[in-house]
Each structure stands twice: as structure tokens, then as C-alpha cells.
Design a protein around this nucleic acid. Sequence first.
DNA 1: CGGCATCCAGGAAGATACTG
DNA 2: CAGTATCTTCCTGGATGCCG
Lengths: 106, 106
Amino acid sequence: MQENHYNIPVEATLEVIGGKWKVLILCHLKNKKMRFSELQRAIPQITKKMLTQQLRELEYDGIIIRYVYQQVPPKVEYSLSHTGESLREVLNIMCAWGEKRITNQI
Amino acid sequence: MQENHYNIPVEATLEVIGGKWKVLILCHLKNKKMRFSELQRAIPQITKKMLTQQLRELEYDGIIIRYVYQQVPPKVEYSLSHTGESLREVLNIMCAWGEKRITNQI
DNA sequence: CGGCATCCAGGAAGATACTG
DNA sequence: CAGTATCTTCCTGGATGCCG
């Protein structure tokens, strides 16, 4: 959060999940913790660079946890933080709306 | 909607409201119909070009209605369509989360 | 008032290669 | 495996001016 003042509160939400891939990433993480390579497979269009970048920002904003297993080869798991969990409702409703739209219920 | 296939349904949601300013615009329109210049004042950072562009896309996706009063000087009002109304819950929850975040409740 | 047409810079994002 | 680093391209979005 660079700014402490917003015109309307929803800007605070957008600052956190407004990134191009963030909602997508979070929708995957809301079901289970995932490794970097799992996320890459789950979101084929994203490049490593973008995935890294978006994960770093989410981590910086306190939405996800990055857990590094101290082993070789490296293993890193990402999961929702407590704050991230508080987004679950937002994510669920966004997902549900997408489903309705695809199935022409709206 | 250019693509009919998504990896996961939330992509359909993002395709509609993923634009940089769309959620912000819709959050304003969910309370009342607004004129172009009202929206500009409500979102000071946005340029006319971007506002026009985002409104066009929302209209094209069937989320908002653009109503032109046939008069001089021109008057144009934007409002949520029926489909747009179905997004109200999504918008409300996003707004609510932003408020909670700003007031440090999460 | 509510746009559209241009022009343009800067940052986002892709491609590729390399590494602990 | 999970990233960096570098380079390049692209295109979003800003600035400005004009118009019915």
C-alpha cells in the first residue's frame, strides 16, 4: 500500500488483487497450497517472470505465504495467508459469477 | 467474449471486469446512473480516452446501458444493465473487503 | 457536453539464457 | 525446481487538439 488515501474503499481491494494474474492465482490457491511449477501448469499462459512477480507482490501485501523447503532440488509452496483467507468470499463470488456467465444463466 | 473456452470459470469474470478501471466505474454506477462528466469527476485520475474506452467495452459486454438524450448540449447517461445488476453482489463484496482492509479489520 | 483522432513515451510483458 | 538477468517488443494509456 503506497497510498493511504483512496477516493473509494474498493480501490484498496484493487490495489491488492488488481494485478493481471492475481485473481487467477488466488483462485487456484484457495483450494490448496501449490508449488511454483504447479501454478505454472495451472496457468499455461503466464510466464515464469510474471508468475514470480505477481507472487512476490501478493506476498508483499500479506495475502499469500511463501514456504521454502530447505532441500535439493528446491521446493516452494504458496498458500493463502490469514488475510488471504479473508478474500475467499470475494474469490468464490467472482468464480460463481463466471460460471453463471459461461452457462448463460445471465 | 473472444474466447469461449477458459481454463477456469473466473476467467470469464476477469474478461468482463478485469480492465484497469472497470470495477471502479461499476462501483459508482451501482449506486446511481451517471453522466460521462460525473464519472470523470468521480474518478479524477482517469482520462477521457480511458473512460470512453472502458465504458465502450462494458457496453459491448452487455454490462452497462448507454442512454443518449437527444438534445443540445449532449447528455449521456450510463447505468447498469440487467446483467450488470447481477454483478452487484461481486461489487459489494469487493467494496466491503476494501473497507475492512483500510480500517485494519484484517 | 461527450466524445474522437493523433501522436508518443514508458512500462508491461515476452523470449531467451543462465544458475544455486 | 524455482527462480534471475537481460534484452527487446508491444501496446496501454497519457497529452493534446478538434468537433457536432
